[in-house]
């Protein structure tokens, strides 16, 4: 049964990948959210094509290195992704990256791939830096993440 599940999972992933490729072709090449740090950058931490297809592998590899080996210095941190790709809403607060029209949410919605990361991970930069770029998100003068009770270690600019 396990094998069947794995096979099924692979088929679904493959289909999702095909859909994603279609989506990329249909929509041109730029999916970063205007106003996010990413929009100002020339390129992502890896070539864009590579990230489109392999970001989950990159994140998963980093996840194991971070949780088990404590390595937080590399450029592949999820916190880094969020810090760079989060958009600023009208009120100046960051908009969660998994919202419908945001960087992670929009694409996963289209590809119908369930996004698990944010069951546990913060969707806006909040609570201090983790890894390079993790805390570098908000431009100066922009209010930091979701309002937190007083005394919380707020997002800091290093």
């Amino acid at each position: 049964m396990a094998t069947a599940l794995v096979t099924g999972g692979r088929v679904i992933l493959g289909l999702a990948g095909a859909l994603l490729a279609l989506a990329v072709q249909a929509g041109g090449s730029n999916f970063v959210i205007p106003g996010s740090q990413a929009a100002k950058e020339q390129r992502c931490v890896e070539p864009t094509d590579f990230m489109r297809r392999n970001h989950m592998e990159v994140i998963k590899h980093q996840r194991d290195a971070t949780v088990h080996d404590g390595i937080r210095s590399t450029k592949h941190s999820l916190a880094g992704c969020i810090a760079c790709h989060v958009a600023q809403g009208p009120s100046g607060h960051p908009v969660p990256v998994n919202d419908d029209r945001q960087f992670c949410g929009a694409c996963h919605e289209f590809a119908a791939v369930r996004l698990n990361c944010f069951d546990c991970h913060a969707t806006v930069p909040a609570g201090g830096p983790l890894g390079p770029g993790g805390g570098a998100a908000p431009a100066p003068g922009v209010a930091p993440g979701t309002p937190l009770p007083p005394g919380h270690p707020q997002t800091t600019v290093r």
């Binding site: 546990c120 991970h121 909040a126 609570g127 201090g128 983790l130």
Partner: peptide, 15 residues
Amino acid sequence: NVEVKLTLAPRGKGC
């Protein structure tokens, strides 16, 4: 469900 999470302390239902 955990609505607000910190970047440095992920937390989610069921773990």
